[in-house]
Structures are given as C-alpha cells and as structure tokens.
C-alpha cells in the first residue's frame, strides 16, 4: 500500500500522482494521511484504485471520479463526488451541501447525514444516504437513484425529471412537480440492490417512492408568474 502525507507533500503532488496511475497499475491501494479539511482531494481520478482518506476533507473531495473507489474515514465538505462518472465514493461521516451534484454515474454512499441540495441535478448517479438529507435535495434531478434511510428536508425533488427517490423516514415537504408514487415489484428489486450496495440495514418495504408528476415537461400558462 502507498501512503501519502498530504500535509507534507501537498495537494498538487497528490492529485498528479493519483492521475498518473494507469488502468493496469499495480499500485491499487492508497492511503492519504493528514487531510486536515483540504479541498479537492482525489479529484479527477481515472483508474481502478482504492484511495483511503484518513480524516475529514473540505470542498469537492472525489469530484469527477471515474473507476476509482474513494473512501473517506471522516466527514466531507461541500460538493463531494461532484459530477462523478463511475466508481464509488464512500463517506463514513457526514457530507455538507450538494453531495453528488450533477453525477452521471457511479455510487456515492454517505453513512452519516447529507445536508442541503444532495443530488442536485443528478444525471445517473446512485446516492445512498444512511442518515437524513437537507432541503432542496434532488432539485432538477434527471436520472439515477437517491436512497435516504432517514428523513428528507423541505422541497424534495423540486422540478424533478426522471430520477427515482426512495425515502424511509419523513419528508418535510415535496418540491414542485414531485409526487409520491406506487412502489411496484420492479422498484423493490432496484431498491434491494441499492440497499445491499450501500451496506444499509434497512428493508426495501419500509421505503416510499417519489418521482416526477411530469407536469412541468411542457409549457403551461398556469405555471407562469
């Protein structure tokens, strides 16, 4: 395993070292010590490596990830796994605002709580949150799955397109054009796989499904101010 001391060696050296790992690298296990809340740790990775961050991070950890597994043994600041393409980002603690924003693919697992705007404009990513999520989550979400084992804040799924939202606890309020939908067998199958992938100790039958009412897809004069 390769150990990288971020405080001693610096962020630019870290990210360029990780970027240099090719598809066929033998150095697949990395440990980053002394992250100390730094920004942009392990962004833009594109190799099947596993990066363990031993502590909490600042903004944009694991952004634009492809293939790699980024495992943060702490909490993360705003914009974790922003625009992820593939791979896995796993957070042991909490995530600040806009976790998984605009993600195209891959899996983001948050074992604590996520704050506001979780999954905003998600485009195919799967986000699995063991705790609660804050207000305006999944705003304009286009595709992918958002699983919340706890509660959701205000205006969940506002102006939603085709993402699936699964919430076990309460939803403070639904955003414009977001409605509760029937949980059919195919949704239970999808959710069971997501819960297993996320390591969640929860039953799919305990969740409710929310999605788009599809009333904002076409211009409607009654929606104009």
């Amino acid at each position: 395993m390769q150990t990288f001391d971020l405080e001693a060696q610096g962020l630019r050296a870290l990210n360029s070292t990780l970027h240099a790992q090719a598809e066929t690298t033998n150095q697949t296990a990395w440990e980053i010590v002394n992250p100390k809340g730094a920004h942009a740790i392990a962004v833009g990775l594109d190799a099947p490596i596993e990066v363990n961050v031993k502590g909490s991070t600042g903004y944009y950890c694991g952004g634009m990830n492809k293939q790699a597994t980024v495992h943060v043994h702490g909490s993360v600041g705003p914009g974790v796994a922003e625009n992820m393409i593939s791979g896995t980002v796993l957070i042991e603690g909490d995530a600040s605002q806009y976790a998984g924003a605009t993600g195209n693919g891959g899996t983001l697992i948050i074992k604590g709580n996520a704050s506001s705007r979780c999954g905003i404009s998600m485009k195919g990513i799967d986000i699995i949150v063991h705790g609660n999520i804050g207000h305006m989550s999944a705003f304009m979400a286009q595709s992918g799955n958002l699983v919340v084992c706890g509660d959701a804040g205000e205006a969940l799924g506002d102006s939603l397109y085709e993402a699936r939202l699964f919430v076990r606890g309460s939803v403070k309020s639904l955003g414009a054009d977001c409605v509760e939908k029937e949980m059919r067998p195919e949704h239970l199958t999808i959710l069971e796989e997501l819960l297993e992938r996320g390591g969640c100790d929860a039953k799919a039958s305990e969740f409710k499904r929310y999605g788009s009412a599809r009333q904002l897809y076409h211009f409607n004069i009654d929606n104009a101010y």
Binding site: K36, G37, G58, Y59, G77, S96, Q97, S116
Partner: peptide, 24 residues
C-alpha cells in the same frame, strides 16, 4: 444556507468555522 458553516464541540470548547480546516 448556501454559506458554509461547521461546528465542533468537546468537553473543552465549542468552535465555529466556515470550513473544517479552520478547526483542524
């Protein structure tokens, strides 16, 4: 709440920072 805020509490203190790195 788009302006960041993070708090930390121990038996010795309560701390506020715009970012976690202010508290490390």
């Amino acid at each position: 709440a788009c302006k960041p805020a993070v708090m930390a509490e121990t038996d010795q203190y309560v701390a506020f920072g715009s970012e976690y790195r202010a508290l490390v």
